[in-house]
Design a protein around this nucleic acid. Structure first.
Lengths: 257, 257
DNA sequence: CGACCGCTGTGGTCAGACCATAGTGGTCAG
DNA sequence: CTGACCACTATGGTCTGACCACAGCGGTCG
């Protein structure tokens, strides 16, 4: 029982403690695989398994060759890991697409409300990137896939403007995990150009509501925007419709999230 | 450049496509590592790296020995993967604790509102587990760590009652990722018994508000519950307090996230 | 008939080898 | 002195083979 933990977990834990202790910081290089192996008393293959996990989780980036930019370098790019996790769990039926959509709805309405509050309090976040993305989406020659890619970036830009990196990464992962379902839903739309027109109008409305500082309205617009598209493509979650701020007009505040 | 993808990614992609195609389902056994290696034309070590990723992500469970329960078996336990991802990202400074707290706030208020709506619409979810957890927490002989563990389970039980597995897993991960910070904050409290008393009162209030079907009230109670504790321990997000539906009815609202 | 025991297949781990890559530093021609 | 070139070296990426621990399975023997 002295050595119950598996060898690769030893490596993982070592890196984690070093991170927490400040020995390792973003930008630092990890010791080489061979050095780690001898230092920790495990085989190089076990080290590699741990590094592979760290890489997929977005904690490190590996590069061959020599020099300062080679080896395993601590980065902090949670999006890839979040995407991989959610995507694979969806594939394995661990997550239902409807739950993904509902979660995205929760987060995105929260983002809109936050941005609106920022605008109302004077500290207006710069939404120039969101704006230029919308302009780029006006191009009628875009294919559905291209349009949806810009659409995703637009929503991501809103999340980034809100400032919560956890939500940014989660949103990106949620979106990525159901990307195939989104694009697969395009042919089921009655009319793609009509859908584009509606989406663009709603995008402009979202931006306007956010800029106006009306949190509740922004929330409602975003809610309808998301549920509208997923309803058209048959992916809507059960709870989404009931959670609409519009269907609960008596409340002053509406759902925060 | 035809073979840019690394060997372990080949394995990962193979498993993913098999999952999406229905060839693999939860409960199924993966082929043995040696078989996978020869089938995919890669080395066994590469297969192991991919399996390690799948294991950490909560997609498979591995066991030695022989028989039907051995080998790599498809499971869908996203919680472990979510916890590992968030915890390591926090360690690597990829995620700020304040952002974790704020995200938890967003999700948990959403959960409370959903549960209240369920109750209001007659389809009352069974909160018997939440109730019994609260009863167990009344035990005054519990240590802070034990109490907080039950506290976490209480909140998790609410999330489960709401039914969204993505939110359940995310909530669990968020909580796990900052667990060390939560317990570290206990000594900074003015009085632990007082804190327990307040938390318990708030827990009962949450349950009552949810059962009453008042979504807005439930949201507010949960909001104050979470922000209250984190504020006492100095972990509160910058915007959390300002976003309260109670404390900011007018205009001085700050950012949520 | 039942307990026992070896066989076999599984993951877990290690060691060694080889390859591709990319800096690094020295060499040599101009 | 300068610059292009090239061997060297350190790095990750991969494969192979080997061995171990474990757990079920099935034949064997009392």
């Amino acid at each position: 029982m002295t050595d119950e933990t598996r060898a690769w977990q030893t490596v993982l834990r070592s890196v984690e403690t070093d991170l927490l202790a400040g020995v390792l910081k973003p930008g630092d290089r990890l010791p080489g695989e061979r050095a780690l192996a001898t230092d920790l008393g495990v085989g190089r293959s076990s080290v590699r398994e741990a590094l592979r996990v760290l890489e997929v989780l977005g904690l490190i980036r590996t590069a061959t060759g020599s020099g300062p930019s080679s080896g395993a370098i601590i980065v902090s790019t949670p999006r890839g890991g979040m995407s991989a996790l959610l995507r694979l769990q969806v594939a394995a039926s661990g997550f239902a697409v409807a739950d993904i959509v509902d979660t995205r709805l929760v987060l995105e309405t929260s983002i809109a409300a936050t941005l609106a509050r920022h605008a109302a309090s004077g500290t207006a976040p710069k939404l120039t990137e969101s704006e230029s993305l919308l302009d780029a989406m006006e191009d009628a020659s875009l294919s559905p896939a291209e349009f949806l890619a810009l659409d995703a970036r637009f929503h991501a830009s809103l999340a980034e403007a809100a400032g919560n990196q956890v939500i940014v990464a989660t949103m990106a992962g949620l979106r990525d995990s159901i990307e195939s379902y989104v694009v697969a839903g395009v042919p089921t739309l009655p009319s793609w150009p009509d859908a584009v027109a509606r989406l663009m109008r709603e995008h402009r409305d979202i931006l306007a509501a956010v800029r106006a500082g009306d949190a509740d309205h922004a929330r409602g617009v975003v809610h309808d925007h998301i549920t509208g598209y997923y309803a058209e493509t048959g992916l809507s979650g059960s709870a989404a419709a009931a959670a609409s701020p519009h269907s609960a007009p008596t409340s002053t505040e509406g759902p925060i999230a």
